[in-house]
Structures are given as structure tokens and as C-alpha cells.
Amino acid sequence: MTRADYRAAIAQSGVLARLAAFDPHVAGTPPLALDLPESDIDILCYAPDLEAFAVEVQTAFEAEAGFALRRWREGSAVIATFKALGWDFEIFAQQIPVAQQQGWRHFVVERRLLAVGGAPFHAAVMQLRRDGLKTEPAFAAAQRLPGNPYAAVLALAGAEPAALIAAGFAIHGSA
């Protein structure tokens, strides 16, 4: 089955409008053009009151196919999932602003790395994803970053593009 472009799916589903009170941000692989057929659309939200958020999300999305709602890490987040327009959607909310959430911080770093590395780096990360790596491990492998790939990618959060280039930003594929 062919699915709509992720932007069309977001617009047609009305998900951002229904979550407007929670500062929704689209993250993950589709906006980075690194999505695979099994990729989902991630929506990150700020919910100072997670219980109120859970009630609002339940009301707004419970009629969607495959709707599920769960608490994560002893109540530190609420996650809702559903299917619409050929996509799986995942809504993730925490009691901290989106800009401070690790998922958003990873997304910003990855977007910056793709901008600095251009098409060759994008191709290398995409091939690593096709080879089976998750997003952060693919970015870390493409840069040969040591240690925990999630921490290694996040450690680049403060690096400006010029600093990345000066530090010898390199592209390593899955060869």
C-alpha cells in the first residue's frame, strides 16, 4: 500500500490542530527524509499536566484505528498511538517544554548533521537505516562516534556547523 506524504497525512488527520494546546512538534525520520516503510510520524508535546493531557488525547483520538494510550517510565510521559492515512502516529508528551526533551534535541542535532553533511551524509545514514540500524545508531555509525550512540549524537547538540566541519566531519557508510 502506498501512503501519503507525511505532511499530507499530518494535515489531513488534523493532529496538530487537535494538539495545539500542547505545543506539538513533528520530529523523527519523515521530516529528515530518512523514513522507511515502517517508520511512524512522531509528535512531541509539552503537557504540564499529564493526566489532563491523557484525557484530552483519549477524547480526540480514541476513534482512530489502533488507538492506544500508555504511561512511560513511571508516569514521566504519556504516549498515544494510532493509525491514519497509511501512517502510524505516535504522540509523546512530557512535563517539560519540547525544546528540552531528548527526542527533540536528537532531532535538531540530526537535522544539523544532515545540513552539514549534505547528500553524501544523508545517503550514508539512509543506507545504514536500510541495513537495519535505528536512527541514532545510524547517525553515530556514519560518524564513527564511539560509545552509546544516543549519548554520542546528543553530545553534538551544542556544536555549530562550522565547528563540526573544523573538527573533521566525515561520512562513513556501511561498506
Rank of each mutant, 00 (worst) to 15 (best):
H25W: 08
A175T: 03
S174E: 14
L44Q: 09
I165F: 04
L50N: 13
R70W: 11
Q58S: 13
V26T: 14
I43P: 06
A99T: 00
A63M: 08
F139M: 01
A84P: 04
F121Y: 08
Q94T: 04
S13T: 10
A166R: 06
I96D: 08
L44I: 10
E90S: 11
A175D: 06
I10P: 03
A27M: 12
W87F: 02
A124W: 05
A9R: 09
W104C: 02
E51W: 15
A52K: 12
A151F: 09
A60H: 09
A170H: 15
Q100R: 05
V125S: 02
V109W: 11
L113H: 06
I79L: 10
F92A: 05
A159F: 14
Q95H: 08
L32F: 13
P137L: 07
L85P: 11
A152W: 13
L154P: 00
H172P: 02
A8G: 06
A9N: 12
A166F: 02
A123N: 11
V125A: 05
H122N: 10
P24C: 12
F61W: 06
A140L: 09
F53H: 15
R7S: 05
P31L: 07
V57W: 02
R105F: 01
H25F: 11
A170L: 09
T59K: 12
N148A: 02
W72H: 06
P30S: 06
L16F: 12
Q12I: 00
K134H: 08
Q12E: 11
E90Q: 07
D40G: 08
V116W: 11
E51S: 02
I91S: 05
F169E: 14
F139A: 07
F169P: 10
F169M: 15
F92R: 01
L154I: 02
P146Q: 02
A167K: 08
A115N: 03
A9Q: 04
V57I: 10
R7K: 10
P31T: 09
R112D: 01
K83S: 09
A84L: 00
A17L: 03
V109I: 02
A52E: 13
A21W: 14
F169R: 10
P24K: 05
V108P: 15
P120R: 12
Q102C: 10
L50V: 13
H172M: 08
G168R: 04
